[in-house]
C-alpha cells in the first residue's frame, strides 16, 4: 500500500444560505481503504460526498486527487473534460437510487458496457464478454443480459449499478447509502458482495451511511459528522467500541438499544 493518500480534503466549508453544511472539514483517504462517513440525516455527509467527488463546489477549502502516476489535481480547479473523464472511468459512483446512474431504457449489458466504450473499447465481443463476466460477479443471471433494468428488482438494480461502476476497475468509488431502501435480507447479501468485490479489486471507497452496522461491516476507518463538523475519526472498531465524542456515544448507544 502507498503512503500518500489518493484523496485529501482540507478546510472544506460550505453554507446553504445560513445553514452550515460543512465547516472546516479535513479528510484523507488512502488507496484500497474504505472510509465510512456516518451521521444522521442533515449532518452534511452527502454534501461532503458531493464536494469530494467534484459535483458540488465548496465555498472554501481544497480537495486534491492523486493520479496513478503520482500527480495531484485540485478537483475543483480541473478542466471540466478532465474531471468528466475521471468520473466516468477512474472513479465510480454508487447512488442510493440506482435509477440515477443506470439507463432504464438500455439493456443490462449495455449499461455495463457503456463505461467500457467510454474508455475506448470498440470490440463488441469483448465488451459483451466483460459485461457478462460482471453480471455473473454481481450474481445476475447471464440470460438477463439483454433485459431492460425496468424488469429488475430493487436489489438486482443495485447490483447492476455496482457492476456498471466496477467494470472499468476504478481506483476510487463514492457510495451514497448503497443499501438504503432495501429489505434487510437483500441488504445483507449486497453488503457481502460489496465487501468481497472491493477487497479483491483494492478500490478506495468513500461510503456515506446513516447505518452504524453498515459502517462497522464495511469501513476500515470511520468519520462521524454532526451539523457540518467531523466530530470524531479513527479506525472503525476503535471508534465504535470506545466512542469519545458524546455525539458518537449517542449514535452507538441508539443502535445498541434498537
Amino acid at each position: 500500500m502507498n503512503d500518500d493518500p489518493i484523496l485529501s480534503a482540507r478546510g472544506l466549508t460550505l453554507f446553504f444560505g445560513v445553514i452550515p453544511a460543512l465547516i472546516d472539514v479535513d479528510m484523507d483517504l488512502w488507496p484500497g481503504e474504505i472510509l465510512a462517513i456516518v451521521g444522521e440525516s442533515g449532518s452534511g455527509k452527502t454534501t461532503l460526498l458531493n464536494v469530494l467527488s467534484g459535483l458540488l463546489r465548496p465555498q472554501s477549502g481544497i480537495v486534491s486527487y492523486r493520479d496513478p502516476e503520482g500527480g495531484t489535481h485540485d478537483v475543483h480547479a480541473m478542466a471540466a473534460p478532465l474531471l468528466r473523464t475521471l468520473q466516468r472511468s477512474g472513479w465510480g459512483f454508487v447512488h442510493q437510487d440506482p435509477k440515477r446512474s443506470l439507463r432504464m431504457n438500455v439493456s443490462a449489458g449495455g449499461n455495463v458496457g457503456e463505461r467500457l466504450m467510454a474508455q475506448g473499447a470498440r470490440h463488441y465481443g469483448d465488451i459483451r464478454a466483460r459485461a457478462l463476466d460482471w453480471l455473473t460477479q454481481v450474481e445476475i443471471d447471464a440470460d438477463r443480459i439483454d433485459d431492460l433494468p425496468r424488469t429488475f428488482s430493487g436489489g438486482m438494480l443495485q447490483r447492476l449499478q455496482i457492476a456498471r461502476t466496477l467494470v472499468t476497475h476504478p481506483r476510487l468509488v463514492f457510495m451514497d447509502e448503497p443499501t438504503g431502501g432495501l429489505d434487510v435480507s437483500v441488504q445483507a447479501r449486497l453488503l457481502d458482495l460489496i465487501r468481497s468485490l472491493v477487497a479483491r479489486l483494492g478500490v478506495a471507497v468513500v461510503l456515506v451511511t446513516h447505518d452504524i452496522a453498515v459502517a462497522r461491516l464495511l469501513g476500515h476507518r470511520i468519520a462521524v459528522m454532526q451539523r457540518g463538523h467531523v466530530v470524531e475519526t479513527g479506525l472503525t472498531d476503535q471508534v465504535l467500541d470506545d466512542p469519545r465524542h458524546p455525539y458518537t456515544q449517542l449514535l452507538v448507544s441508539s443502535v445498541l438499544q434498537a
Binding site: G109, G110, N111, G113, E114, M117, A118, I127, D146
Partner: peptide, 16 residues
C-alpha cells in the same frame, strides 16, 4: 466533454 457514451450504447443495443 466528448461524452458520446449514449451513441455507443445505441450501437451496442443494435448489435445485441
Amino acid at each position: 466533454l466528448a461524452d458520446y457514451g449514449l451513441m455507443h450504447v445505441k450501437l451496442y443495443e443494435d448489435v445485441a
